[in-house]
Amino acid sequence: MFGSTFNNGLEAVVINAAALILTLAGFGVFVALFGHNPLDVFYILYLGAFATQLSIENTLTQSAPLMLTALCTAIPARAGLLVIGGEGALVVGGVATVLVGVHLGHLPPWAGVLIMGLAGSIAGGLWIGAAGALRQYRGVNETIATLLMNYIAIAIMSHLVSGPIRDFDQVLKTSSWSIPESLMVSTVPGLDVHWGLAVGVATCVILYVIMRQTTFGFGVDILGGNPRAAQMAGLPINRMVLVCCFIGGAGAGLAGTMEIIAVHGFASESLVVGFGYAGILIAFLARQNPAAIIIVAILVGGISASGGLMQRRFDLPDATAAVLQGMLFVMVLASNTAYGRFKIFQLKAN
C-alpha cells in the first residue's frame, strides 16, 4: 500500500532529521566550550561542504570511497551480519591493486584499469568473505573477526611497504612501488572529481537493483529478516552469507583500487584514513539501502570536506570533525530505537 510505504519513509526522514538536529545541538555545545559561536561554525561547515563549486567537488571527492566502503557493512547487514571490516578490505584491495598494477604498464589503460579493479574487488571480497566463512563454518563472531582483520590488513600493508614492495626512491614517506602513470585515471568530465565517484554511484545503483529486483535479493531479505524462516524455507544460507560478504568486501576493495589509481598511485599509510569506519556510519544512516547510501555518503563527505576548513578557521582541535561524525553516529544508532514509537506514523488497524 502506498500509504504505508509513504508513512515508513516519512518516519525515517523525520527520525533522521531529528537525529541530525540533536547532533548539531550537541556539537554546538562542544564548540561553544571552545568559546565560539555555534552558528558561525555551522556556517563555515556549510561553506566548506556545499557553498561553492570547489567545496562541492571536494565533498564529492570525499564521498566517493565512502559509498563503496558503506556497502561493505550494508550488504552483509541485509543478510543479518554486522561487518565492520571496510577499513581492512579497502587496504587489502589497495595493496592488491598495486601488486597487479605494477605489471600492467604494457596494456592499454582500459584493460589495465579493469584488471586492477577486478584485483581490488576480488581481494576485498575474499577478505570479508573469509570472515563470513569463519562465522558460518566455525561460529566466529563476524563483528569481532572483521574488526581484528582490519588490524591484520594494515599490518600486512605496513610490512609490504616497508620492505618487500617498498619504493626506496620515495624518501618523504614509506610507500610501495607506484603503478604506471599510464594507468592512473583522471577526473569526471565537467567536474574536478575523480572517476571513483562514478564508480561508487554506479556500484550502489547496481546493488540496489540486485537487492531489490532479484530472487537472490529477496532471499537475502528473508535471511536478514528472520534466519529461522530462511532455514525453514530451505534457502542455501551459507552460500548467501558468503556471497553477501564477498559483495560487501568487493565494494570496499574497489574503494581501495580507486584510491590507488585515482589519488595516490601507490600504497601507503594514506590509505588508512578512516573511510572504512565512516562507511559503517553511512550504512546505518542509510538503513542498509544501497540507493540511500549515495545521498548519505555525500552528506558525510561534506563533513569531512569542511572539517579541515572549520578546524583551521576557528583553531579547533584536530579531532573536531571526528567528534562531529562520532556524535552523528551515536545519535543515529540511538534513534534506531525510536522507530515504531510514534503513533502518527502508524496506520490505524482497518
Binding site: G219, G225, A229
Partner: peptide
C-alpha cells in the same frame, strides 16, 4: 518461526515459491 516481520503479507506468502 516462519515469517519475516518486516515483510508484507504477500511477500511472506511467497517465501515457498518466490
Amino acid at each position: 518461526n516462519s515469517c519475516v516481520r518486516e515483510m508484507s503479507v504477500a511477500e511472506n506468502l511467497a517465501i515457498r515459491i518466490f
